[in-house]
Every structure is written in C-alpha cells, then in structure tokens.
Simulated assay, not measured.
Amino acid sequence: MAKVKYYYDAENLAYRIIKPVRGKKIGVVLLFLFSAALFGFLCFVVLLNTPYFETPKDKLQAREIENMKIRYEILNHKMDQIDEVLEEVEDRDNNLYRAYFNASAIPDEQRKAGFGGVNRYKDLEGFDNSELVIGTTKRLDIISKELVIQSKSLDEIAKLAKDKEKLLASIPAIQPVKNEDLRQMASGFGYRSDPFTKIRKFHAGMDFSARTGTPIYATGDGVVVAADNRLSGYGNRVVIRHGFGYETLYGHMSRFKAKAGQKVKRGDVIGYVGSTGRSEAPHLHYEVHKNGEVVNPLNFYYGNISAKEYILISKLANQENQSLD
C-alpha cells in the first residue's frame, strides 16, 4: 500500500492530503529506468576492459597471440640451428678455404655486425610482445647479413680457385723435350763459354741437344705471341705468353707447328728441334721469363720428371761447359 502524504494548509489551519500527479510519476519511473540502463551500460563497458571478462573475439585473439609466441619460439630455435651451421661454414671459410688461397680471413666483427644509425625497429615498439618480435627480427637481419657476406666470400673463393687452376695450368712445368728424345743436356742457365767467341758470358736459358725434327712441347697453357725468325741469334723461335707474368721462348727450331695468336695447352707440339740462327749443332734453346726477367728453367721441371731425373739434370745443367748458341 502506497504511503499517503500530507501538506499543511495555513489558510484553513488544517492538513490536506497530497494527491500525486500522474504524469510526474511516469517521469520518475522513466528517469529511474534510464539511470539503471546507463549504469548497466557503464558496468558492461568496465567489464569489457577488465581481464575478468572475455568476449569470444578476445578469446580468439588471445589464442592467436599464444600461437604467435609459439611460432616465434620455433623460429628462434631454427635460427639457433642456422647459427651453428653458419658458424661451421664461416670457420672452414676462414681457416681452410681462405687460408689455402692466401686470402685474408673475414673478422667476426664484420660478419656479425648489427645495423647502426637509424632505428630500424621503431614500428615494432610499444606492443605487449615488442621485445620478442624486435629480438627475433634483429637476429633474422643479422643472419641474413652473415649469409650475404658468406655468399660473397664463397664467390671470391670460387674465383680464386678458378684463377689458381688457371695459374697451375699456365706455369711452365715440364721439359720442352722428352727425356727419351734427348742426346744430352748440353748447357744450363748461368755463365758459360760462348761456342763462337770462347768468351765466358751469361747463358739465359737451357740447351737440350736432340736430333733435328725432334718434337718440342709447350711447357704450359698460353697463347703464342711470336712464331718467326726476327730476333737475332735465335733463328726460328716461338714465344708463348702464359699469363701471370710467365713467358717461354723456344729457339733454333727447324720448323714451326704453332702460329702467332694460337692458344696452346701444356704438352702440345709447337715445333721441331733444329739448328737455325746462331747455333753450333741441333738443339733447343729454352728460356723462362717471369715478370720480364729471365729465371732458371730448372726450377720448373716438376711436372713430368722424377726426383732422380731432376737431380741428374741439375748436375748436368750446372756444369760450366760450352753452350751451343
């Protein structure tokens, strides 16, 4: 039962019953309902922003975040494995490949250096998992840089290997006349008696005495730059440019097999023994030049003779006898 309210009527000196206004009562009810709805909405918003209340969307997002963390952990584990393999490759690169080709090792500071200057990871800051994401991204960037450096190093090693192979093929490493075709080692490198003037003078090569027509072989890969008799004293001569500073000269030939501009391989026949030019008897005069200077050909016969044969040739070549040209 609703309470009855009164008011005091001063004119009549009596209490009168207050009759409620119907419209006002409805307004109060509506105001109450609005206030309750507003309060409920505010409570709902507060609950949505607390960890104690999760919507289906929040739960899905939380699962995705956990899944992302697991994926990042797996990625970091894989990067650990890549690091181990890369370290082994880098160690072999520095201490085996680059050492073999006499190339300077790449220091760890250069291989594993970060990226200075501008903050490359600013866009990844300010999130709950920023530390994890930034750390993983940095590792990935450094590994990528290491791979680029290692790739360039292997490219350099491949070029050095190719050059080394070419160098080994180009060095004049065999005798120009086979041992079975030799009559004798007539004269070696150094001061010898001139056959015509009998004066002791410097002999810039080695003389191989053999029958006229005995094959003469290129002692290393190269290009024939001369096959003529224009150089006084050498008669018919062939000059081969091997590269890497090496040249060889073959003099007193009876005839040529090679011609200027021709590419030759070690062991190719380039001409035949003769006695043209300033020569006393059929033989091959052979010279080796390195960077424009004559060097002793005896130092290069490691490609086709044994140690015993080398010792014998060395003894004969070092005798101060008379040269044949």
Rank of each mutant, 00 (worst) to 15 (best):
M1L: 12
Y7F: 13
Y8S: 06
D9M: 11
A10F: 13
N12K: 11
L13V: 13
V21H: 15
G23V: 10
K25Y: 10
G27W: 15
V28Y: 14
V29R: 12
L31P: 02
A36N: 04
A36Q: 08
A37W: 08
L38R: 08
F39G: 15
F39R: 07
C43E: 09
V46K: 10
V46E: 12
N49S: 12
N49A: 13
T50P: 05
T50E: 06
P51D: 09
F53K: 08
P56R: 15
P56G: 05
A62E: 07
R63E: 15
R63A: 15
I65T: 11
E66C: 06
E66R: 05
E66H: 12
N67T: 14
M68W: 14
K69N: 15
R71G: 13
Y72D: 10
E73P: 10
N76V: 05
H77M: 09
K78N: 13
M79T: 08
D80M: 04
D80K: 06
Q81E: 14
I82E: 04
E84P: 10
V85E: 09
V85F: 14
E87G: 15
V89C: 12
E90G: 07
R92W: 09
D93G: 12
Y100S: 06
F101W: 08
N102F: 05
S104G: 03
I106A: 04
E109T: 13
Q110A: 12
A113Q: 13
V118H: 11
N119T: 08
R120T: 04
L124N: 01
L124P: 00
E125C: 10
D128A: 10
S130E: 04
S130H: 05
E131F: 11
T137M: 00
K138A: 08
L140N: 01
I142R: 04
I142F: 09
I143C: 07
S144A: 11
Q150K: 11
Q150C: 11
S153P: 04
D155I: 11
I157Q: 08
K159V: 15
L160C: 11
D163C: 05
K164P: 01
K166C: 10
S170Y: 00
P172Y: 03
A173L: 03
Q175R: 02
Q175Y: 04
P176L: 00
L182Q: 04
L182T: 04
Q184R: 13
M185E: 06
G190A: 07
Y191Q: 08
S193E: 13
I199F: 11
R200K: 15
F202G: 02
G205N: 03
G205Q: 01
G205E: 00
G205P: 00
M206V: 12
S209P: 09
A210K: 02
G220Q: 03
G222S: 08
A226Q: 12
N229Y: 07
S232L: 12
S232I: 13
G235Y: 00
V239R: 01
I240E: 01
R241G: 08
H242M: 06
G243R: 06
G245D: 09
G251A: 10
R255E: 13
F256K: 02
A258R: 00
K259L: 07
A260S: 14
K263F: 13
V264R: 00
R266V: 02
R266A: 07
V269D: 12
S279Y: 02
H285L: 03
E287M: 04
H289R: 15
K290P: 05
G292K: 03
V295A: 05
L298W: 00
N299Q: 14
N299E: 14
Y301N: 02
A307G: 14
E309Q: 09
I311P: 01
I313K: 00
A317S: 13
N318D: 08
